[in-house]
Design a protein around this nucleic acid. Structure first.
Lengths: 212, 212
DNA sequence: TGACTTAGATAGTGATACTCCCCAATATTG
DNA sequence: CAATATTGGGGAGTATCACTATCTAAGTCA
């Protein structure tokens, strides 16, 4: 197919496709002449993936490029699959960041602190710091309950990874991590709305009875 | 305190404080003359909150303004508290969006579809669409497990809201929703790393080598 | 008195993700 | 075969966002 047909098939403007080509997110088509190239299904699939990563998962163009590179060159170790996905959405922490609070929590939850990525630990510290800066003190029991729920999710994540092919595993881990995050957040909000409604009874009642 | 002292106390540049004043994120200080104003602790607290919402929670300046407005004018209904927080992080859906897939899921999970916000349902649909566009098919059982975990979190959320004061409840709901999201995502990633390590063992290098 | 600080306003910056336009070289259509 | 349309390639322009810098007049402080 030609670039205009590729654009029509994916609902991505031609100018944007050219931009992705320039940015090496999308592989070139096969040149049939100096001013013509053919594109195929692989380009359609790739474009949809790019749009999902940029649009749905909210990745930057450069983070998307890294993820796509990772998908094409799966690492040897299964554990390293996660690193690529997590690295794309985690900003690198400065050298002098204090991770002791995170490590205390990780130990408490039984997650080996030494097996966890530095930058991800720093992200947890930063997020908790944001909470306390805002004057919000999360009780330890609440954090523990959150941790238990997220551990359950993570175990489901890891168990659902296909073991037959490294390529399929790579794809599953990266997409399952990145594209599932907005799903989980939407679920939490919907569950909150449902729980709030059930606890408050019908809407309109004032806060007291067990406010949401 | 003067503006330079406020800047020193919060580590926010003076120029940025002026910007927040212009944008009505921060209330004016008390003018003591044509070119001098006094700021106090309320400005310090507010600035920290603003930085947490913009920096940690990733809100835009305009979304932050809406949230702050909501915090100052708590709605009558407890159920509406959520709406303000959720509205700030959920883009409004077009009128013609198809919510039937979301409603099917909500019914399945026992969350009243009619009690849930349209835009939030649309966010779930969009997120699931992103997954399938990327060629990732999430098994229903996996989604169910996610939903159960998020429901547990949401119940903890709702139960932990203080009932003594509407203002405290408002603050708790908004901050607990917005600022806790990055905490939850960081937790999931750490739990994944832990679970992945336990399941796959130490295969290959501990930290992703070519993930940059 | 003279260096320093401030409010308030305007304009500029850097990053990001496109989007537009141009050209020569085809491809397609009449 | 001629007229029209499309394309690859590349540079430049645009919109948005969250600041950041500069300027001026009017102060403050030592």
């Amino acid at each position: 197919m030609r670039i205009s047909e590729l654009a029509a098939a994916t609902e991505v403007p031609v100018a944007t496709i050219k931009y992705y080509l320039r940015e090496n997110l999308l592989h070139d088509g096969v040149l049939t002449s100096a001013t013509q190239a053919r594109y195929d299904d692989s380009h359609v699939r790739r474009l949809k993936l790019i749009r999902a990563l940029i649009g749905t998962a909210g990745l930057s163009v450069s983070a998307t490029r890294e993820v796509l590179l990772g998908l094409e060159n799966p690492p040897e170790s299964g554990h390293d699959l996660l690193g690529i996905a997590h690295h794309a959405v985690t900003r690198t922490a400065p050298d002098d960041v204090d991770l002791s609070s995170a490590q205390k929590l990780l130990d408490h939850w039984g997650w080996g602190a030494e097996t966890c990525d530095r930058d991800t630990q720093a992200a947890l510290v930063a997020a908790l710091h944001g909470l306390s800066d805002a004057g919000f003190d999360a009780p330890a029991a609440l954090l523990d309950r959150y941790a238990a729920a997220m551990q359950d999710i993570a175990e489901a994540d890891v168990e659902s990874v296909p073991t037959d092919s490294a390529e399929a595993a790579m794809r599953h881990v990266v997409l399952g991590t990145l594209l599932m995050e907005p799903v989980l957040l939407a679920m939490r909000r919907l569950a909150q709305q449902s729980a709030s409604f059930q606890r408050l009874g019908r809407a309109g009642s004032p806060v007291p009875p067990g406010a949401e």
